[in-house]
């Protein structure tokens, strides 16, 4: 078998299986988005672009994108910085590092929908431990879930708690597989730890960083369980994100057709913006690599 033919043997099985599973749902969603499928009217009639015209004027949908951007970008950046920092901390010469490595991984292993309930009890303003700690530090109790800014912060905190381990793992795995020679060379040059990090570690970690950030952005954008449980989008609409809004329209309201239009729009916007983000990140982070 020639190399040229055999390359398909590698890629095609996965590709075919994936397309087989995903093709129908995807096409179906697009088709549904042109229908008036609703709680009172199941089925695939044809109403043209009505749903899309409606969503253009749906300020709640567009506002939710802004909040999503803030929440996703904010929490992913925090996760990346914290994850990188933690990976560096337990990379070398630390006592009991294997213990800490395992410990740092654990939050990622928990079921978001259940942990969100636990976090809601923690943030409970009179029965939870967070305000207890605040009181211990001699501050007034804070409205963690009922004030717009704090509610957003609370949700970001939960996201950071849950998903920093993901970054940590990716980056630690990356760090652990780095070759030693560049570090030796830097040491011979007399570079300090900060210079070594900027000149050697960070550039070598750039490809894995970009991948990790992109995949986290994708996942973070779908945030639903924690919003639903912790604030259910409130106070007002202060923590309502796109996917939560789509959830309300699609499964609460059961406006299936409209939700499909919202989702497809979401999919297109996300695919475009992620591509742009990936390109920008690559340019910013890989510049030295290419030079």
């Amino acid at each position: 078998m020639s190399a040229d033919r055999s390359k398909f043997v590698f890629v095609l099985p996965g590709l075919i299986v994936l397309v087989a599973i995903i093709l129908f749902p995807l096409l179906f969603t697009i088709r549904v988005s042109f229908s008036d499928w609703d709680v009172a009217r199941p089925g695939l009639d044809w109403i043209g672009a009505t749903n899309y015209l409606r969503l253009v004027h749906d300020t709640r949908f567009w506002e939710s994108f802004g909040r999503l951007a803030l929440m996703a970008v904010g929490s992913v950046l925090l996760q990346y910085m914290l994850g990188f920092g933690l990976a560096l901390l337990v990379w070398r010469e630390v006592r009991a590092r294997r213990f800490f490595r395992v410990l740092f991984l654990i939050p990622m292993m928990t079921t978001p929908v259940i942990m969100a309930v636990i976090w809601r009890t923690m943030f409970h303003e009179s029965l939870g431990p967070v305000n207890d700690l605040v009181r211990l530090l001699h501050f007034a109790p804070l409205p963690w879930l009922s004030q717009a800014g704090l509610a957003m912060m609370s949700i970001i905190t939960v996201e950071v708690w849950q998903w920093t381990p993901f970054m940590f793992l990716m980056l630690l795995a990356g760090l652990l597989s780095l070759p030693r020679e560049p570090f030796l060379a830097a040491a011979i040059d007399g570079a300090g730890p900060i210079r070594t990090f900027l000149r050697v570690t960070f550039p070598m970690m750039a490809p894995i960083s970009i991948g990790a950030i992109i995949i986290r952005l994708i996942e973070a954008s779908k945030i639903l369980d924690s919003v639903y449980v912790i604030t259910s989008g409130g106070p007002g609409t202060a923590t309502e994100t796109s996917s939560y809004y789509i959830f309300i329209r699609g499964l609460r309201d059961f406006q299936v057709g409209y939700a499909a239009a919202l989702s497809f729009t979401y999919l297109v916007i996300m695919a475009i913006s992620l591509t742009i983000i990936a390109k920008v990140l690559a340019r910013a982070m890989l510049v030295r690599d290419r030079a």
Partner: peptide
């Protein structure tokens, strides 16, 4: 949603 927006002062 409307009630909640009013409660939140939006």
């Amino acid at each position: 949603t409307g009630v909640s927006e009013a409660m939140a002062g939006q």
